[in-house]
Simulated scan of single mutants.
Amino acid sequence: MLPLRSLSAFLREGTLFYKPTTLAQFRFDLRLPPKTRAALNQSRLNIPGIRSRTAGMTYDLVADLDGIESAGERGRLLLRPAAIQTCYGWWVPEAYRKGVEEEIRAASEKRASKIENLTRSLKTGIESGKVKKDARARFLKLHRYLERNGLSAGESFTERSKCLE
């Protein structure tokens, strides 16, 4: 191997892989006020599909639909042992490229299968009315909890109340 005298020479000795950031497919931000989120985080209230995160609270449409959840196991692909993270993406030396490509292919197939299952379950749940029925029951439970504890749901509280009637 010849000594590498430039960044471009270094990069030519390997392959760059771009790792896109993915978001949860079926989750929606509830946009609750900070005081309400803090109170809900401290409470023991458990409503399937409603999850708290540092930035906010989300609702997952497919929670418990056919026993699955869109936020289930993440299945992270770890490139670090064979790659170096750069501002351009993950740089993989040629000696490791085939192995990394195989890992990426397998992870992509697994993710595609998971998304197909979620989509099929969501479609079936919408057609049968289960998604709407579950959402109504879950938001009613949340609404009653907020009302009982004097917590605000934010500016859309009135509109949310109309939907629950």
Results as ranks from 00 to 15, higher is better:
residue 54 T to H: 14
residue 75 G to N: 13
residue 78 L to Q: 11
residue 142 L to C: 13
residue 42 Q to K: 15
residue 114 K to R: 10
residue 18 Y to D: 09
residue 99 G to F: 11
residue 149 N to M: 09
residue 128 S to C: 07
residue 42 Q to D: 14
residue 1 M to L: 06
residue 96 Y to T: 03
residue 101 E to K: 06
residue 69 E to Y: 02
residue 41 N to C: 15
residue 5 R to L: 01
residue 99 G to I: 04
residue 54 T to Y: 06
residue 17 F to D: 01
residue 84 I to T: 11
residue 51 R to T: 15
residue 110 K to Y: 01
residue 139 F to H: 05
residue 108 S to G: 13
residue 157 F to L: 04
residue 106 A to G: 09
residue 105 R to T: 07
residue 74 R to I: 09
residue 26 F to A: 02
residue 146 L to G: 14
residue 121 S to Q: 04
residue 23 L to T: 00
residue 1 M to K: 08
residue 39 A to G: 13
residue 26 F to T: 00
residue 84 I to A: 10
residue 23 L to Y: 09
residue 133 K to P: 03
residue 3 P to C: 00
residue 33 P to M: 00
residue 17 F to P: 05
residue 12 R to F: 02
residue 84 I to V: 12
residue 4 L to W: 00
residue 91 W to P: 02
residue 49 G to R: 02
residue 7 L to H: 00
residue 153 A to I: 05
residue 125 G to Q: 07
residue 1 M to P: 06
residue 129 G to W: 09
residue 93 P to C: 01
residue 42 Q to W: 00
residue 128 S to E: 06
residue 99 G to Y: 10
residue 103 E to D: 15
residue 3 P to M: 00
residue 56 G to S: 04
residue 30 L to H: 03
residue 88 Y to N: 01
residue 115 I to K: 07
residue 19 K to L: 02
residue 23 L to I: 00
residue 36 T to E: 07
residue 69 E to V: 00
residue 12 R to C: 08
residue 84 I to L: 14
residue 61 L to A: 06
residue 33 P to Y: 01
residue 102 E to I: 10
residue 47 I to G: 13
residue 112 A to E: 08
residue 146 L to Q: 14
residue 61 L to S: 01
residue 103 E to Q: 11
residue 82 A to K: 04
residue 101 E to M: 12
residue 30 L to T: 08
residue 6 S to F: 01
residue 78 L to R: 14
residue 108 S to C: 05
residue 91 W to V: 03
residue 116 E to K: 14
residue 7 L to V: 02
residue 107 A to N: 15
residue 118 L to R: 06
residue 99 G to C: 08
residue 135 A to H: 02
residue 12 R to Y: 10
residue 160 R to E: 14
residue 111 R to S: 08
residue 86 T to P: 01
residue 49 G to F: 07
residue 5 R to E: 05
residue 103 E to P: 10
residue 11 L to Q: 04
residue 85 Q to C: 15
residue 114 K to S: 07
residue 67 G to H: 03
residue 146 L to W: 10
residue 96 Y to E: 15
residue 50 I to A: 04
residue 142 L to T: 08
residue 120 R to F: 07
residue 29 D to P: 03
residue 92 V to D: 03
residue 119 T to W: 12
residue 69 E to G: 12
residue 10 F to C: 05
residue 144 R to F: 07
residue 123 K to N: 11
residue 150 G to E: 14
residue 82 A to R: 06
residue 162 K to P: 01
residue 107 A to M: 03
residue 20 P to M: 00
residue 117 N to T: 15
residue 158 T to Y: 10
residue 130 K to S: 12
residue 105 R to H: 06
residue 152 S to C: 15
residue 65 L to E: 09
residue 132 K to T: 11
residue 73 E to T: 10
residue 58 T to V: 04
